[in-house]
Design a protein around this nucleic acid. Structure first.
Lengths: 340, 340
DNA sequence: TTGTAGGCGTTATCAG
DNA sequence: CTGATAACGCCTACAA
């Protein structure tokens, strides 16, 4: 009695099957190098004992883990869900597992998370955006850990990446807003520091405004964390400015959804009294009322391509590539010309 | 040249500091057992070399990983976000890391994920709900891996858990709906199979109806996956039934949000033409229009308590406990008496 | 306080 | 096709 819970090991299986551990290992990893008879014998033992290989031991001995890590800014809203999901499905097909962590939008934490993932034996990493100090890249390079950057893509950068030009993507939408006649434009941006996506999107809006001869009033730009409540709060603040904006452009759909909710609460009609735009085209975008005019990003494709790139890198096929994806403004109902 | 990227090991550090690997190990794990002078010497070497301990090796040698795993049905919407977030923060304070996987609402996958987490050396597991075959529990028990169940709690169950009684929680809301005068009630439920939370919530509604002398028409109950689109689709189907429901109760807030969106699209006023209710009280609930009447679940506390329980179990303090949390109906605007 | 040495569960190299 | 056996990087008695 009191038999301690014994976890079966390779050795146990070997014994039960009357072969060496090496053979069992082969049965598990390179079936083709084993005779049919011993294979079935071994597999039976595996079944009976309920054997599950010890991942840590395996990773250590094989010097690879078939695991890749991803660090995303947040899991709290759906912004990254679709892309990561596609990423993980694609990885699965290639025989890799995915480990995701989130840095809760605190870029300082990323380095720590990277180290953690690496120390866990990640064969490769998916990182979001470009903003991080070069030490981090060096760290990865020293250890020979390939990584691909996603969700962003900056002219002139050289690291393997798959993404879209956030600036170029926001541009057409901003142009549209202005061409519709809006002259007083409020902006609810994500926190720009350490976030090149947020920064690029904001810059695109500013650029567009100046290009059209509008002056950008810093007071009409609010930076805040990506979440519904903050979208609401920022919107309320913006609507108190003078002159009141006739359009509010948001750094993403979540912020925009928060803004729309607050508008209704304040009795402000969208888009009659004020237009609101988003970015990302997450599922929520077409479910809010009025449906959100936003920029569609091919998240799924991005995830798939990222997986391809990363695995190629890991398995020594292909080298640094840069894949730029196209985005598209999708006009729905939250944007219209300003009331005259 | 072509110096292969050499990852520093304990041994490297030991050499650089002029001590044994054992001492370095102590400096990293039990500082108090080392003299100040050697400690600083060692730490310096660690810095210089940029040493990061190899997690796999450590887990293997120490026979523990300080890692706990969680398996949630989905990361695609915010249902589990708050609770898991709190869980992870609490764990962090106790010196544990969290690994989360999601089974995308396919209960069959859970077993596989559990094995994966276990083979990765998880010291303990957080599982959602009770529905799983006993083999799984046996598997965990054999290996001495403690687990706590959350998000649910069924009378008479014995496994350590922290949660709320889904049935008892939905009951008051259903009663409320009926007492308001609704006689034709549609239900958009989550898929019941392999999901005790969805099942309990649905049963609560049925119970309440029969208790009030209403007959439950199976045709007025739709089961579907938790997501916005499905909520919309199901709502549309429901509104085509005869007699038309005057209230639609949803298995969670996401479904309800989808229903609300569709209602507007169809020109149906909520709550004037039809009332809609949710469950969970996620952030979205108060941002939709009309704000959702739902059941508030103390997600954060649940996460915290789960962490306490699990770590106690792992560290051999305390034994199986059952913590029941209270939920609360929160009346907002999406529920009103039926039009007479 | 510090060092020595054995072992954790697998994989991989080399003979047989 | 199969079996020894040496790593893999670290922890932990046990000794000194």
């Amino acid at each position: 009695m009191n038999r301690q819970p014994s976890i079966p090991t390779l050795e146990d299986v070997a014994q039960a099957a009357g072969v060496s551990t090496a053979t069992v290992s082969r049965c598990l990893n390179e079936k083709e190098k084993v005779s049919k008879s011993t294979l079935s014998k071994v597999m039976e033992a595996v079944e009976n004992l309920g054997y599950t290989p010890n991942f840590n031991a395996r990773a250590m001995a094989a010097r690879r883990s078939n695991t890749i890590g991803a660090i995303i800014p947040t899991m709290e809203n759906a912004i990254f869900a679709r892309g990561i999901q596609a990423f993980q499905v694609a990885l699965h097909e290639k025989g890799y597992n995915l480990l995701v962590s989130s840095n809760v939008y605190r870029p300082e934490l990323e380095t720590e998370l990277i180290k953690s993932l690496v120390s866990r034996g990640a064969d490769g990493l998916l990182l979001i955006g470009h903003s991080r100090d070069s030490e981090t890249y060096q760290y990865l390079e020293r250890r020979g850990i390939p990584s691909v950057l996603a969700w962003s893509m900056q002219p002139g950068q050289t690291h393997t990446c798959v993404g879209f030009d956030n600036r170029a993507s926001m541009h057409p939408l901003a142009d549209k807003v202005i061409e519709l006649g809006h002259r007083h434009i409020g902006v609810i941006s994500g926190i720009v520091e350490g976030n090149d996506r947020a920064q690029s999107r904001l810059e695109a809006i500013k650029d567009s405004m100046t290009a059209h001869g509008l002056t950008v009033d810093p007071d009409m730009i609010i930076q805040t964390f990506y979440d519904l409540d903050n979208g609401s709060i920022a919107f309320e603040q913006l609507m108190q400015k003078v002159p009141t904006p006739t359009a509010v452009m948001c750094g993403n759909d979540v912020l925009a959804a928060g803004a729309i909710a607050k508008a209704r609460e304040m009795g402000i009609k969208v888009p009659e009294d004020v237009s609101i735009t988003g970015f990302d085209d997450i599922e929520l975008a077409k479910h809010v009322y009025p449906a959100l005019t936003t920029v569609h990003v091919p998240h799924r494709e991005m995830g798939r391509r990222a997986a391809d790139l990363l695995v190629d890198l890991i398995e020594d096929r292909g080298s640094a590539s840069i894949i730029q994806l196209d985005t598209e403004v999708v006009m729905r109902d939250s944007l219209s010309p300003p009331k005259t």
